[in-house]
Structures are given as structure tokens and as C-alpha cells.
Design a protein around this nucleic acid. Sequence first.
DNA 1: ATAATTGTTGACTAAAATACTAGGTTATCT
DNA 2: AGATAACCTAGTATTTTAGTCAACAATTAT
Lengths: 153, 153
Amino acid sequence: MRLSTKGRYAVTAMLDLALHGEKGPVTLADISENQGISLSYLEQLFASLRSKGLVRGVRGPGGGYYLGREMDEITIANIICAVDEWVEFTRCQGKGNCRGGQRCLTHSLWDELSEQIYNFLEGITLGDLVKRGDILDVVKSQRQDKEGMRVVI
Amino acid sequence: MRLSTKGRYAVTAMLDLALHGEKGPVTLADISENQGISLSYLEQLFASLRSKGLVRGVRGPGGGYYLGREMDEITIANIICAVDEWVEFTRCQGKGNCRGGQRCLTHSLWDELSEQIYNFLEGITLGDLVKRGDILDVVKSQRQDKEGMRVVI
DNA sequence: ATAATTGTTGACTAAAATACTAGGTTATCT
DNA sequence: AGATAACCTAGTATTTTAGTCAACAATTAT
């Protein structure tokens, strides 16, 4: 699996969309300015996101991007998989070259860990993050202690 | 944060160490052959792991590497952080260029997600994976149903 | 109708990270 | 002494990242 700044950009941009998409489509130019990501790079990322149905583009003046689905139906795993290839090349490809099953064991262990991470990211939606952002704001304004600010899933 | 094949290599190699370290030190040549990772590349990775105290090298004939601590005291986050820089460059650096706090909001949301992933990886130790590997083997030999094979943290 | 706006697509590029190679030095065991 | 294996340094090919540039298509406002 991969999880680099590319996926981070995509998640951040999608968050921007979720936060400002209520009042009409959001232009890539806005996101570019808000998040400090190059416009053309965003276009590339959104081409991937669009092909997976995660966003919906509206052309012409006043156009921009909407979320492709409800924010509660879009998981972080969805977004990262759309822009960041989810490679699975460590599993021995049935060549039978695993001596004593040792190689198979470590590989299956890693695969299990990889699956755990995937399930974790699959369990968080954009909606969750936005809701938690609100909570964080409320908590912050109430000046609670730091322990109270740590929101657990 | 980063989580690419580099960290995957490191985790896999450390798993190898945890699985075979009982009967003496494990050589990088063995790991290289078992896991199909280039020897010199492993040396680079282990230089990082060693500097963080995650492994302990023994020179000379019959030498190799031991785990630096008990496998229950080594988390996946430890390993990935040792070889894969844990960058934190999205947070606005106090330049006050966040208009209306919107940029700050998405950034803090991402930071929160990033922290969740970190905590998740921090909660899994090498020992956990090895134990689960045993469990998996037992379960597999008992031919239980597939649901029983999915181990949850 | 026409101009402005915005998405869509493709080709191309500089910089960085990745994965690997080559060659050496040092400690330790037999 | 000689073999072994960690340890160290430098270099390099490939891939990925992050970005630019340019042309084009669809839609809206004037």
C-alpha cells in the first residue's frame, strides 16, 4: 500500500469540497489558493477522483466540483485508492519458491497488517472528519483540557 | 506521513527477525534471500533501524542481527518512523495566511486523521503480528470457517 | 452569437525519493 | 591468518512526485 503526500493532497482537497460544497460547486482555483496546491496538479488528482465517481464536475462559469456522493458515503480509503495505487505485490505469486513456508508467513503477516490499515481507513468517512472538526471547534471554544480534545474513533 | 514500500520492507525484515531470531542472530544475507530484497538496500535500512535501537548487530562469523528490544516493545510505528521520515509540513507555520480559518480547519482535520493512523500503528507490535500468525496457522490447520480467520485487533 | 469561465485531456519537465550497485573498512570467530 | 558478516560511503538508474504548458470542450452570462 502507498500513503504519501499525494493521498494527503487528495484528502485535503476533498475535505475542502465537503466543507464548502454546500453553497454550490467549488472551483479548483479556490482549492488551489486555499490549500496551496498547484492548480494543474489538482486537475490531475481530480481526473482520478472523477473517474472513480468521487467528485462530479460542472463546466462553464459558476461551475466547479461537487462531491460525487454524500460525504458519509466517501471513505478515506476510497480517496487514497483513487489517486494512490494500492499495490499488492509482496504475496508470493504461487511460484512455490517459499522455503519452509517462512516467506509465506511473513508475507501473510504483512498482508494482514496491510488489511488492518485498509479497514481502518475504510472506517473513516469525510462526514466523520467534518463532524469531528465541528466538535473540535466547540471544544476549543469551551477551553476544555487537552485530554478532552483528543477525539477517539 | 509516508507509508510506502520502504516501510513495508523494513516491517517485513523485522518480522523475519522476530520469527527466526530465537536460534541466534539472523544475517542480512538470509533476509535478502528469504524476502527478495537487495542486500545493500537492507544494509541501508538496518543502519536506520540500528540508530534507533530497534536492532542490534553482531559482527564477525556467526554474527547477524537481533531485535534491539522484546518484540512486544517494538511497534509498527517505531519501524516506519525509523526508515520513513514522518513529515508534518502541512500545518500552517503561523504565518497568519489562513483566510477565515478555513485552511486551518482542513489542515487540523488532516492532522487529526494523521494522528489517528499513527496511534493505530503505534498500537500494533511485532509480537502481536507473530502471535496472530501462530493463531492464523492453528486456525488454518483446524479448517475453521473464513470468518474465524479474520483476526480483529 | 460571442466572450468568459471552467472542466478535460495530454504531453512534457525538474526535482526528489526509491531501490539498487560497487567498493571499501572494521570487528570477530575458527 | 583468514573467513565472515556487520558497517560505511559514494554513486546511479528508475520511478514517483509535483508541477508547467497548451490545446480543447462545454456551459453560462452578456
